[in-house]
Design a protein around this nucleic acid. Structure first.
Lengths: 230, 230
DNA sequence: CGCGGCTTTGATGTTCATCAAGTAAAGTGG
DNA sequence: CCACTTTACTTGATGAACATCAAAGCCGCG
């Protein structure tokens, strides 16, 4: 874990959020205050139960938000990518994290002390409105995702998540699955074996081509139908 | 002092939220602006897809938040009670409702034009912070509820929801189920028949006594175990 | 090179939805 | 007020969807 303390906010989308409401001087201030950390694949970013100190923004990479469930298996709630507010769930509602987070790939996270953010909400109404709507969007997306998944069965779930990766996260019909088969199962609430079985079926039906983690959606029409049908 | 007296917001918890951050004059203003409306059992409060105009607060009663699914069945996302912000999901993230809402019993809802709330966030930082944390709490609760339900099976789900009613909503081991068996199924993602079957089993095992809609939890120890075990 | 983790496939049993059929309760019109 | 429809509730039988168990191949890594 490298701790870099630069002020290189160019190219960071967080900047654009702040710029809408903050003057340049405040923005420069913010840049000095923020901390940037990189996490390697598999590294734990936040452990559930620990104290919340920072407001975190995912600058680059991919993470999973999950909950421990005994020793053996976790349950993944959501997967967050670039420009996501990472700690949306509990930052403003509790003092301790309810969920754990870990990096699915090389990830850079930008942290700002929560008290500074709160101070900014107090002082800057425009900032408050923008932040509120951004947080609402993010939580709404998670609720929708979980709700959609919960009312489908195996085939529909897999199809839905694959399309989610293709459309939302990678914006490409071909991508490297950032999850192991086991994690895939933990995400959609199914066993590893059945995830594999269904992926194999999709391969046999020429809906996908699979090569280890690399997935290529061949018949996205049909995949979309399966996702919708449930 | 006299101004505030004329307003019948006494006993309303929304007042206490606003009072923490609003001066008495603003509070009086707010009281004049708000609209109060009552809905009878079964009446639709909000139809999904319609334009969001108001920020709504549930003063008294019980509602279900759900989504249409064809002609036959809905899917219930959550059940909200007194002191809940009803329109938490989409108010700040979109212009149109994603979900429908209807009254499960006689319900009174207090509405304030959304633009007024937004204006208040702009002007009053303290108000913004409180609102943000209240909304976060509410959405977090929904995410937790749905996540908890999704990883249990039938028996665990029923036990969990019964305890949710007893502990959170009615604060009593004996209560009138505000949902039909069908709605219960729509809430936990199961068929009506299996809801009934499981309730019957619980009755036979002397965990509950059931008389139509009236439910009395006899062995809450065991019910809690079933809920935990999944 | 062998150990542990990830992946894959098959066989078996459990959980649950679906179908069918019947009873009770609740509203509706003559 | 009673026949009549409609809606909610209940139970049982059957089959589909899915978890679990078992076994083996694969691959990276010490």
């Amino acid at each position: 874990m490298n701790k870099i303390q630069t002020c290189d906010c160019e190219g960071c989308h967080l900047k654009s959020l702040f710029f809408e409401s903050l003057g340049e001087i405040d923005m420069g201030e913010m840049c000095k205050i923020k901390t940037e950390k990189s996490y390697y694949k598999g590294e734990i970013i936040v452990e559930e139960g620990t104290h919340i100190q920072d407001f975190m923004y995912l600058k680059e990479g991919l993470i999973k938000v999950y909950q421990r469930n005994g020793e053996i298996s976790d349950q993944i709630i959501s997967i967050a990518g670039p420009q996501d507010f990472v700690s949306i769930f509990t930052v403003f509602s509790d003092t301790h994290y309810h969920y754990s987070m870990s990096a699915l790939e090389e990830t850079t996270i930008c942290s700002i002390d929560l008290s500074i953010i709160k101070d900014m909400i107090l002082k800057n109404g425009k900032f408050a409105i923008i932040l509120l709507s951004r947080i609402s969007e993010a939580t709404d997306r998670v609720i929708k995702l979980r709700f959609d998944i919960s009312r489908k069965q195996l085939h529909g779930r897999i199809a839905y998540v694959l399309l989610h990766f293709a459309d939302v996260i990678f914006k490409n019909t071909s991508f490297d699955l950032p999850l192991s088969r086991k994690e895939f199962g933990e995400f959609i609430g199914m066993t590893t074996e059945n995830v594999i079985r269904t992926l194999s079926e999709f391969r046999k039906d020429k809906i996908l081509s699979i090569n280890g983690k690399t997935i290529n959606i061949i018949n996205s029409e049909l995949l979309r139908k399966i996702s919708k049908a449930g």
